[in-house]
Amino acid sequence: MPMRIWKTDTPERLVIERRLHVHKHKLELDRTKCVGCELCSLICPREAITVKVPEKNGSEGPRKPVIDVDEEKCQFCGICNCICPFGAIKVLKDGQPIIPVAESESFPRLLREVVVDVSKCPPGCKECEDACPLGLIKVSVVGPDGRELSLEEAKAYPRPEELKVNVEIDLDGCPGCRLCELKCPEGAIRAVKVIHGSIRINTDLCPEGCKDCVDVCPVPGTLTVGPDGKVVVNEVTCVYCGVCRLVCPVEEAIELTRTYIRHEPIKSGAWNKALEKLTSTVHLTRELVAKSMERGQEVVEKRLGWIIARSGS
C-alpha cells in the first residue's frame, strides 16, 4: 500500500493519520483541552503547526485561537505532545501512545508536580476538585468496608478517622496554576508551576472596553477586569501559556516572559532550540551554564574523587 494521509477536523478534535504498509502514525489534538496558546506552534521543528486568531467582529464571545496542523509536514515526532502544558496533543504509533522524541531523550517531558497530603484532607471536602479549572482532580472517599462514599455520607460519617480519602489528579494536563493549592482550606496540596515567568499589562495601551485576554485565559481569576474597567493580573495563578498575548489586539500591551520551564533533565539540541524560542537566549544560556557546571563537577568528582574521599576521612 502506498503512503496515505488522512486529516479529520471537527470542533472537538483534529486527527492526522499517516498510514504506511506496516506502520500507522497518528496525531490527535483534543480541541476541548487546547486553549489555543502558541507553544506547540513556536517549537514545531517542521513548522507544521499554525495558530489562527479569529477576526474581531463586534463583542460577542471569547476569540479562542484555533490550532491547525499541516498533514503534509507533520512527522509525528511528538515534540508538541511533550510541550503542551494542557496535554491536548497526543501522538501514537501503531495505536500506542509512544512519543519518539521522549523515548530517545531527545526532548524532555514537562515535570508536573502536585503533591497532596491526604492525611490532612477532611472527608467530604472537595474544594480542590471544584477549584481545578481543567477538571483534572477527582476526590473520592472510601469507607472501612472498601465501599465508596458520597461526600454527604462522608461528611456525616461518625468516625472520620476510619475513612480513606483519595485525590486523583490527571497530571498530564496540569499546567500547575496552583488554584487547588490556594483553595485548599487545610494546606494539604502543594502544586508547582510548570512554566515560570512574569507578566505585565500596560493598561494604558488597552483599547476601550477590550477584555479579549480575560475571555481566553484558561485559569479563572488570573486576569480580571478591575473596578476601574482596567485589566488586573494575578500572577500567582498565571501559567504563562501566552494565549492572552496572542489575542491582544495591541502590540506590546501584554509583556510576558518565560524564565524557566520545569522539565526532565536532558541533553538535547532540540530542547535548547525550543528553550530559546519559548524563553529567551538569556535563559537558555543560564540553563546551559548550569548544565556545564554540573558536568564539570561530575568530572572533578570522577577524576579527583580519591582525593576528596581521603581528605574527607
Binding site: P2, M3, L20, H25
Partner: peptide
C-alpha cells in the same frame, strides 16, 4: 539507533520507515 525521527522510507517504496 539514537535518532528519534522516523521518516517514510523511500527505499522501501514508503512501505516502512
Amino acid at each position: 539507533d539514537a535518532c528519534p525521527i522516523e521518516v517514510p522510507n523511500d527505499w522501501d517504496m514508503f512501505l516502512g520507515v
